[in-house]
């Protein structure tokens, strides 16, 4: 589904990704871990198409298509959804309005009709109660004044409504209380299926107890230096990154 091949990316003159390789297949859940500043958010931003990142060499393919030539919204319409580490506030724009515009953009791109209002409300209400969110969130401006945890839930709500093929979730667990962590994890798990894939950036083993990954990768200094299964996450939790660095230097 997603293939990243020898990706080199420069931000404002300095190289951040230095030959990154990653393959994500349908049905898989990948966890991306690694020290602060390693380039995890950079990778998801480049896949989503954010401006300001210069790809100096390498390839990023999604279902065989060259992502790097596609506009941001084309990538989203192709089925990629980025859950933000820091969701953005948009004053005056109702949350429900953004949801509807996003869903309709998808439907129109697929040559379908815009969703009828009652059907949309039903869909949103279902997902809203699944995320244990109050109906008032729909009427509030996008992320404005939301608490850290509420913003994260809102990202998952969008994901549940938009049903992406590839969800990239950047530190979706940060700022969540224990109960919210469970709700968010249930949300993500409900999306797991044979034709979808999930790429999660996280610093904590705790999230991975709720959303059990098929693969765990360690990103250090712009490269994936070690990959394994969920046991690798346990080991990292116990031992930190030091040994991985030493191992990869050796």
């Amino acid at each position: 589904m997603l293939e990243v091949k020898d990706l080199h990316v420069t931000v404002e003159g300095s190289e951040i990704l230095k030959g990154l390789n990653l393959t994500v297949n349908p049905g898989e859940v990948h966890a991306l871990m690694g020290p602060n500043g390693a380039g995890k958010s950079t990778l998801s931003a480049v896949v989503a198409g954010k401006d300001g990142y210069e790809v100096t060499s390498g390839e990023v393919l999604f279902e065989g298509k060259n992502l790097l030539e596609m506009e941001i919204e084309e990538r989203a319409l192709a089925g990629i959804l980025l859950g933000f580490q820091y969701p953005v506030e948009i004053p005056g724009v109702k949350n429900i309005y953004l949801l509807k515009a996003a869903l309709n953009a998808q439907r129109v791109a697929r040559g379908e009709e815009e969703i009828p209002a009652p059907e949309f409300m039903k869909l949103v209400r279902e997902q809203l109660s699944f995320m244990k969110m109050d109906g008032s969130f729909l009427q509030r401006a996008v992320n404005e004044g939301f608490s850290g945890g509420e913003k994260k839930r809102n990202e998952i709500l969008q994901m549940l409504v938009l049903q992406p093929k590839l969800a990239m979730l950047d530190e979706i667990d940060s700022g969540l209380d224990i109960d919210a962590m469970k709700v968010v994890a249930e949300g993500v798990n409900s999306l797991r299926s044979a034709d979808r894939a999930i790429l999660m950036v996280t610093h904590y083993q705790r999230l991975l107890e709720h959303i059990v990954p098929d693969h765990v990768h360690v990103l250090v200094d712009g490269r994936i230096v070690k990959s394994g299964d969920k046991d690798l996450a346990n080991e990292l939790e116990a031992r930190g990154y030091e040994w991985v660095l030493e191992e990869s230097a050796a």
Binding site: A48, G49, K50, D51, E71, I72, E73, R75, A76, L77, L81, L82, F84, P87, V88, E89, I90, V93, Y97, L98, A101, A102, A105, Q106, A109, Q158, L162
Partner: peptide, 18 residues
Amino acid sequence: QLFYCQARGISEEDAVNM
């Protein structure tokens, strides 16, 4: 804000309007 909207599939023009 623009990136956030576009990353949800909304065109740049629609995002600006929104």
